[in-house]
Every structure is written in C-alpha cells, then in structure tokens.
Design a protein around this nucleic acid. Structure first.
Lengths: 338, 338
DNA sequence: CAATTTCGTGTGCCCGTGCACATTTTCACT
DNA sequence: AGTGAAAATGTGCACGGGCACACGAAATTG
C-alpha cells in the first residue's frame, strides 16, 4: 500500500505538495500536480483509513440524529442501531446527539436549529413531509452539513436515503398471502392514512401483485385507522360486518392490535389470515398466539445503524455514500423465525 | 474520551507504565498498577480505535480464508462477503489470503499448512468434519493463530463460529409449509446425506415443528440425494411414484434442480408445494417460474463478511468476538422479495 | 526600484498506541 | 558499604494524513 510519503519521494516533492494535489487545496504548479496525480494513479493510491481517522478526530466530529418519540417501539429499535454505531464510533472521538421529537414539523424544525447551534457536522433525520423541513435540509446542505434521510424520504438535497422499499413490502405481502391461500381469497386492507406515502405505497404494491399474479384474489374493502388502536378496532369491526366474505386482512399501518381484537371478538380468528407489517411487541405476541400468520419487516435496527455509518464514513474518511437509495431488506417473519 | 496520556498524567506516571498496566506486559509496581487501573476504570477508558489500528498495521496482518470451490454458487456469495471486507481492510495494511479447496480433509489440511507457511495471523475456515482438521485448528490456536469456523462448526478451540442455525431453518420451513397448506399436507423430505450435520439438523427442526404445531402434517417419506442433481431426479421420481399422496417437498440439501425436474416430468408441479433452502441461481429461476414456492436462506454474504470482521477486529484492535456462536438470520424468500 | 502581495513548496507537529531502548530505583549478597 | 542484577519506570520514534506556518521566488503595485 503506497503512502503519501512514498508518492512524494517518487515525485521529488514534499508530503505537503502531494497532500495539496490529492485533496485539491492550496496552489500547486500545474506540471507538478500532473506528475503527482499520475504517480498516485499508477500506484493506485488509497488513503490509509487509520491515518485518516486519527487525523480527523482532532475535530471531534458530532452527528445529529432526529427521530420520533421513544414511545414508538419501531423507532426504539432504530435507536438501538444508532446506539450500536455510536458505541463503535466512540473510539474515534466522534459523538452522536440524538433528539426525539413528536411527528410534527414545528418540533422537528426546532430540533434542527438546536442541533445546528450544537455545532453538528452531519445530520440523520426521519423527516416529516413538509416544505419547511425540505428547505431546512437544503440550508444544512448549503452550509456544508450533509444530511441523510431515514425511514421516510423527502425531496431535498440530502446526500442519501436509508429505508424500506415500501412497494416491495406490499408486493411481498400479497405474494405471501397468495401462497398461503392458494390465491383464492377476499382481502380487507387496513391502512393508516391515504396521505402517508408509505401506507399508500404498500397498498399499491399489494394491489399490483394481487392483480398480476393472483386473479382469484379480491380486495373486498379498504379502511383507514390513522394508526390508532381504538379506531382500528371500530373500523375493522365495521368492515368485517359489512363484508362477511373477508377471510384475510392486510395491515399496511399500525393499529394492528386493535384490528386483531376486532377479529377475535367476532370469533373469526381461525377463518381470517392476517398479515401485518413491522415487528413490534404487540405484533409478535399476536404471532405467538397464532392470530397473525406473518409480518413483513423492514430491519429497523439497520435503519439506525446504516445512516450513521454512511455519515461517519463521509465525515471521518471523506468517502461519500456509494448509493443515493439504500434500501433495507424486506423480511418475512413467521412464528419460527421471529 | 480519555487517552493513555491523560491517564498517565493523572496517575503521575509515564505513558509506558500505563501501557504496561493496561496490556499487562512488563513489570509494574503493584500499587502503581492498582492506581492506574482505578483511574482507567473511573474514566471508562477505551483504547482509541484509529490509534490502535495505525500502530497495528506496522505488522502487516494477514488473514487466511479456506472455503470450498468456486463452482459452488453458495460459497461464491460467501466469497463476495469476504471480498467486501477485504476491500474495507485494504486501507489498514491488512490482507486476506483466500484458498478454495475441494471438500476433502486432505486438501484442507494441505491448505492450512500452506497458509501457515505464508505467515498468516488468523484463519477463517469452513471445516470438513474430521478429527485431523480439529486437531490442526487446535494446533493453530496453540501457536497463537485464532481460528473462526464458518458455515459448518467443528468441536475445537476455534474462537468463534459464524453460520446458520440449521435447526431454526428446519423449524421455519415447516412453519411456512404449514401456513401455506392450512397444516394439512403429506410431505416428502429430500436430504443430502444422513452423515452431514446441517442436513440432519434441518430435518430435525422440520419434524419438531411439524409434530408440535401441525398435527395434520405427515412426513410421508425421506430420501437422500447426496447433493447430486441426477441422483436427486431419480430419488424424487421414485419417492413420488411410491407415495402418490405426497403434495409437498422440502429440500434440506442441494440437488434442488434435479428434484424439481422429477416433479415437472410427472406433471405434478401444480399439486406440489416445494420449499427449498438457500438461494442459488437455479433455485431463483425455479421460484420465478412458480415451481418452488419459497426458499429458506442463510445470508451467505454475511457469512463471508462477519468472520473476517471478527478476526480483523481481534487482530488489529485486540477486541475478541463478543459471542462464540454468531448465527445469521433465517430469511424467507419468495418471488417478491428474492 | 523598493515594498508588498501572491504563488509554490517545504517542514514540523498533532492525533493515540505499541514497542524498543534507556534510565533510574530497589534489593540481595558479598 | 560496594557491587551487580533485577525490577520499575521514562523516553523516543514509528505508523499515515491533515494542517498551520514558514520561506524563498516571482509577480504586482506605488
């Protein structure tokens, strides 16, 4: 592995000059620069990561993370991924500042401002869908603070997105449901809100696969529960009453517990195949008790771990994320592989 | 983050003394050692990773990897994981020496000897089940060369195992098959050999879940194909002829393509639910064409990546693997989330 | 033409750790 | 008390890259 020192010797210049050429800072004679570049190219020079990080940590890099509140078990697991990476990064004099705020643009904006005055060098955020937030992300970017969006994306100058491919999750749910019913099934879909992109995407994916692969799969009804268990109970009860032919449910949102309560109170557990999304404690319990057959998961731990990794690599080692869209796997969980 | 220098100042001694205490090398006055230890404890001292690695790479660490031959698509993907980690490690003056050998103890033994004379500092190996190999692993360990087993474990002084929990894979296969058939099914099991632990473990897991959770699931027959497609074709043909009631197959081994050919040649594709293990190109093709319903995967990429990570962390940073058994996830793949 | 700026380049130190070597202190034995 | 070994401790350098500062030469300005 070649080092800057070796390149300097070969080019007959000093380390400083090579440094200036390879990091294009300061002024260097055009011919000298050219020669240095050629030598670096020929030797396939890659900066040594350990040296890079050792030098970087003089700066005490700080990375801000804005997620939703702790009470949400999904984000709790995302946080564990963040914490794991924080642990690893501790040895590099690089720290993480986590802020958990309500799902509301005002609170998020305030959190961003606060982190800015804390002097962060990069930001991970699960943005709510607001032009204000998008503008603020752009502002961060223009100030030289790279932003990575996680779990939910937003049109802005963020350098990368880490999260689920929601359409693929919907596809998978339909495919699995088809396989579990020989394709002959009347489905009720429970969504959160038609204004939340990830819910509509999941439903679009579900419908797509249902139409393309299972001609006998009928989507009998769709309802919205606004991620609330009580509302979910009522809406699902109503849906099942109105559509007695329904023998499968797909939950594209939260409120799974409330919806399942409705099925159980109507004694239709055995005749209803239920597929959910994500793996929170309530869902796992319902899988253990046989009420839910399967759940489609989106690796929350990795959604915490990966964005911090991408950002720390960029800030500490100068390596930008390879991909703009970093999708996590769509995992199928049943009782046996929970 | 405290450094050795800071601890030295607080204890009123030199960096060298702190170094000797914390890495227990050389001789230090008992009281001084105690004081240093207390201060390090109080400050929660963790050695700086960048500094550690920078110092470590003077040694040009070499890690050996012994896997089975390239022609096996599963190990090809394992190798990609190894290569990915090698790429990351290149910047640390740490190199990987890969040797691919036939599944045979003699060849493996020779490869180990060769790597030894190459002066490796650690070894990743997918061992064949032989006392010779176990003894050789022990010998490596006693010479101070840590060994990590991957994919297959063996009773020896290896410091860690990375691989699948085969029993859980069998459990999952049965659970999934139960859900896809309402539990009412006659299963034929295709194994490789009753002498290969991972095959028998998968079958044990399958039987366990079948018995515990699906009283209507009957295991009609079991056959062995020795991982060979031609033999698989013949054995499955015979099994289906002898047991016309079979309407599901579980492949616990390779030879999936041959076995599926048998099903297709008997025109029993539509009436036979097939679940396989692992995701090689042939299997994926059969999923796309609707012959195989699902496959239970064991993250081959991660099985290449993780062992090298564990070993490099140990050798470069002195951090031993946290767990002895590092199981990869048991993933369910269907057409939609391949 | 002298004073000042700009450009191109070299040098030294820092980051945190490991390790070889140098130096001091302790202690046993004559 | 003197000697020598052994134990305990201090010191300097290496690892690779970033960056501030210094310095000479050339270009520009008044």
């Amino acid at each position: 592995m070649p080092t800057i020192k070796e390149i300097a010797e070969m080019a007959g210049v000093s380390r400083g000059t090579v440094d200036r050429v390879l990091n294009n800072r300061g002024s260097v004679n055009a011919q000298t620069a050219q020669r240095v570049r050629e030598i670096a190219e020929k030797l396939n020079y890659k900066p040594n990561r350990a040296g890079l990080m050792l030098a970087a940590q003089k700066k005490n890099i700080r990375i801000g993370v804005i997620l939703f509140s702790e009470s949400n078990p999904f984000f709790h697991e995302v946080l564990q991924g963040v914490a794991a990476k924080e642990q690893e990064l501790a040895g590099y004099n690089c720290s993480i500042l986590v802020r958990q705020v309500p799902f509301e643009e005002k609170a998020q904006f305030t959190a961003m401002e606060e982190l800015l005055s804390d002097g962060i060098h990069g930001l991970v955020i699960s943005p709510c869908n607001s032009l204000f937030i998008a503008a603020e992300i752009d502002r961060f970017h223009d100030m030289g603070i790279p932003v990575v969006t996680v779990n939910t994306d937003i049109f802005s100058r963020r350098i990368a997105y880490v999260g689920s491919n929601y359409r693929a999750a919907g596809n998978t749910a339909a495919g699995l449901m088809g396989l579990m019913t020989f394709g002959d099934v009347h489905v009720g879909i429970v969504s959160g809100s038609r204004h939340v992109l990830c819910h509509t995407e999941r439903i679009a994916g579900f419908s797509e696969t249902a139409a393309a692969r299972f001609p006998q799969m009928h989507i009998a009804a769709t309802t919205e529960n606004h991620d609330d268990d009580v509302e979910s109970f009522e809406k699902v009860s109503a849906m099942l009453a109105e559509h007695p032919e329904i023998n499968a449910l797909y939950f594209a949102a939260a409120g799974v517990y409330g919806g399942c309560q409705a099925v159980q109170s109507l004694n239709r557990t055995d005749s209803t195949l239920i597929i959910a999304n994500d793996s929170v404690p309530a869902t796992e319990e319902l899988i253990r008790s046989g009420v839910i057959a399967a759940t489609i998961c989106q690796q929350p731990y990795r959604q915490g771990y990966l964005p911090v990794e991408l950002l720390s690599r960029y800030l500490l080692e100068g390596i930008p994320p390879e991909q703009e869209y970093n999708y996590v796997d769509t995992d199928i969980r049943i009782l046996e592989n929970l």
